[in-house]
């Protein structure tokens, strides 16, 4: 009998160690990489570089917040990057060709993102096609349309955008404050409203949610629309940041957004994750490493490989954790 309990104790200990590794292992690896960069390039951990990292994180961070909504309802949105592209093109065209004020361009970008999100949501909830395929299709369509609209040319934005791109408050880029505002609003919606809690419920057990009187399809649809809208903002912000929309605009960013969200605590299996501080931690960590790789002069290919490895690790940990979970 004693033996049995001893064995059980040991097993429990092993289990705990495994859980600890699963919960924090990826942070340890990422932190170790940051230490590595600091040792290699002392410039890495300077205030100006940190501010730069925060600023670059902010743009994709907003898309990350959107991705959180979709991941919480157990969906996925591959189209985020191309949604950003087409939204930026729509906003940029209004700015350049019609001389609209910047705020109108932002609203147009949001609407463009919202439409793509609504299309995604419609096919996922009403036609019941798997989200991966639906959003992969909209990814391709959105990219094609953006390339068509720009004639595959670089689109230089009007100088008006420089005002926003260089705007600072307390020495910190305005982008960071926009990101923080989005995170705070999203956090309040997710934790303090009935709609937010129902999103988690739908992600946990959609059929159960329907049985309990929650309008499951509508809730999920909303999640995609929120994601799309935030991508619209992110796209336009990104364009302002760069001052130019080139044909490679945000290509591959969907991987950064999805992996950052999962590192930040969301799960591909749904029902999990907190935007605050998850979305911030996730995106800043990933951007810090991308920044570090650039600083040590790694080739562009290394960055692509890294992107693949990081999403693989994040998803692997997510899957292993999930299999032990009671539903």
């Amino acid at each position: 009998m004693e033996k049995v309990t001893a064995r059980a104790g040991k097993a429990a200990e092993g289990k705990r160690a495994k859980e600890l590794f699963m919960d924090y292992g990826i942070y340890v690896i990422l932190a170790a990489m940051i230490v590595f960069f600091t040792v290699q390039k002392p410039n890495f951990l300077t205030i100006s570089n940190i501010l730069l990292i925060l600023r670059t994180s902010s743009v994709l961070g907003i898309a990350c917040v959107g991705m959180f909504f979709v991941l919480i309802v157990a969906g996925i949105d591959i189209s985020v990057s191309m949604n950003m592209y087409i939204s930026a093109v729509v906003g940029g065209t209004l700015l350049n060709n019609m001389g609209m004020p910047l705020i109108v361009c932002f609203i147009a970008s949001c609407l463009c993102g919202l439409v793509i999100g609504a299309i995604n949501g419609f096919f996922v909830t009403k036609v019941k096609i798997v989200p991966f395929i639906v959003t992969l299709a909209t990814y391709s369509v959105a990219r094609g349309m953006a390339l068509f609209l720009t004639n595959q040319q670089m689109m230089f934005l009007d100088n008006k955008v420089m005002g926003l791109a260089s705007a600072k408050f307390l020495g910190i880029s305005a982008f960071v404050f926009i990101f923080l505002a989005v995170v705070i609003i999203a956090h309040i919606v997710l934790t303090c409203t009935q709609f937010g809690r129902q999103l988690y419920a739908c992600g946990n057990n959609l059929q159960g949610a329907n049985k309990m009187g929650i309008n499951g399809p509508r809730t999920v649809w909303f999640a995609y629309m929120i994601c799309g809208t935030l991508c619209g903002i992110a796209g336009m912000l990104s364009a302002c940041n760069l001052g130019v929309i080139n044909p490679n605009f945000s290509q591959g960013d969907e991987f950064v957004v999805i992996s950052s969200s999962i590192i930040g605590g969301a799960s591909l299996f749904g029902g999990k994750g907190r935007v605050f501080p998850g979305a911030i931690i996730g995106i800043v960590m990933v951007q810090a490493i991308i920044n570090g790789l650039t600083m040590i002069g790694a080739s562009a290919y290394v960055y692509t490989i890294f992107r693949g490895v990081i999403i693989f690790l994040a998803v692997m940990v997510d899957s292993i954790k999930f299999s032990g979970e009671i539903r």
């Binding site: 988690y200 992600g203 057990n205 159960g208 949610a209 309990m212 929650i214 029902g271 539903r327």
Partner: peptide, 17 residues
Amino acid sequence: NLFTNLSVTENLFITDM
């Protein structure tokens, strides 16, 4: 029929908070 990722309170009030 409980949502395992939510708290007791949230489960009890999920449709009319």
